[in-house]
């Protein structure tokens, strides 16, 4: 017989593991992956493949030559970062830019902090924001979605995102939300006058609009989110607080001045809000621990997102909002402790 083992209690352990959690997130992203392939064709496959492979390679190289980790390559976290990075870029992005994004995401934002669990910021978003600032032109030319495998790998027609178009147009004299919605936006592209119509709400929900790979289809993201909530991979606090705050804040603005501010539903289904709320803000590593803290985190995200979208220089604020709030996580963890047993009762004397 083998020697008896001795250890402190507990002697049983859940069958949950980091790997299972990570793969759960990957399964939850499948609907969004399928939708992006449907709308952006082979380009979507290309971007995602390059991104995932680059992320895995960099994690492998860093672990092998720099930090001598214990092989976290198989735990699936690099795959998630790869897919999320791909989700956050347009489908026509050149491959070298994607690789640069992957280097920044994995190499700088994740591994330089000490690998999985140690990073302060969401790696995929750091990569994305780095690219957005470094390659603003490439990062903001959005191919117009063409259902089914129509789009070729080279000359996709580009157009604006609903959020971007609306924001640009609202800056003009006398523009109102209603007018833009009805008349569309006319601009000159390649010497021709093109009229861009803001997609209908149905199209927005389904994903038939310009934008990054993963952010277009709210419905696919919601399916994935439901899966993660049922499997208890994520908790409800952050997404609910985030989306709720966006709806309330945008709703207040909209009610105050419907001509200048678009309705909250538009905010909810366009841009990367769904993607951010369910897949990136809930990233365990860079979100607060207590449920109170998570609510605060979500509210902060909502306020920042709407502020940036409505008043900021960029049409889209999800990435920045999440990164800014990531920085506040240690502070939130200090300030918002879980409810403690025996604290409610006050004993005199």
């Amino acid at each position: 017989m083998e020697l008896l083992k001795i250890s402190g209690s507990p002697h049983i352990h859940t069958d949950n593991s980091v790997k299972k959690l990570m793969y759960g997130v990957i399964y939850a992203m499948i609907p969004a992956i399928l939708v992006s392939v449907y709308f952006f064709g082979l380009d979507a496959v290309r971007v995602m493949l390059i991104s995932v492979v680059a992320c895995l390679m960099i994690e492998y190289l860093v672990e092998k030559y720099l930090i001598k980790g214990n092989g976290s390559i198989t735990d699936g976290s690099a795959v998630i970062t790869g897919i999320l990075l791909a989700f956050n870029v347009p489908s026509n992005l050149p491959w070298h830019i994607i690789v640069i994004g992957a280097i920044v995401a994995i190499g700088i934002a994740k591994m330089s902090f000490g690998g999985l669990g140690k990073n302060l910021f969401n790696p995929a978003l750091v990569g994305r924001v780095f690219l957005l600032i470094s390659f603003p032109v490439q990062m903001t030319s959005w191919p117009v979605p063409k259902p089914m495998f129509a789009a070729s790998l080279t000359d996709a027609i580009t157009g604006p995102t609903p959020l971007g178009a609306l924001k640009e147009e609202l800056k003009k004299q006398g523009a109102t939300v209603q007018k833009i919605m009805e008349d569309g936006i006319s601009f000159i592209q390649d010497g021709e006058k093109v009229v861009y119509h803001i997609p209908s709400t149905i199209d927005q929900v389904m994903g038939n609009m310009g934008g990054s790979l993963g952010e277009v289809s709210a419905i696919a993201l919601l399916i994935g989110a439901a899966y993660m909530l049922i499997r208890k991979i994520i908790t409800w606090e952050i997404p609910l607080a985030y989306l709720g705050t966006v709806v309330v804040f945008a709703g207040v603005l909209w009610m105050a001045n419907p001509e200048q501010f678009v309705n909250p539903l538009f905010h909810l289904v366009t841009g990367g809000l769904m993607l951010g709320a369910f897949f990136m803000a809930t990233d365990m590593v860079s979100s607060p621990m207590s449920s109170k803290g998570q609510l605060v985190f979500g509210v902060g995200l909502g306020v920042l997102t709407v502020l940036i979208r409505v008043f900021g220089a960029y049409p889209e604020g999800v990435s920045f909002a999440i990164l800014i709030m990531n920085a506040f996580v240690p502070l939130i963890d200090r300030g918002f402790k879980p409810v403690r047993f025996g604290e409610v009762v006050k004993i005199k004397g």
Binding site: L21, S72, L116, M289
Partner: peptide, 8 residues
Amino acid sequence: QNCIRCSR
């Protein structure tokens, strides 16, 4: 493994 701050 590293703590992944899952808050479980």
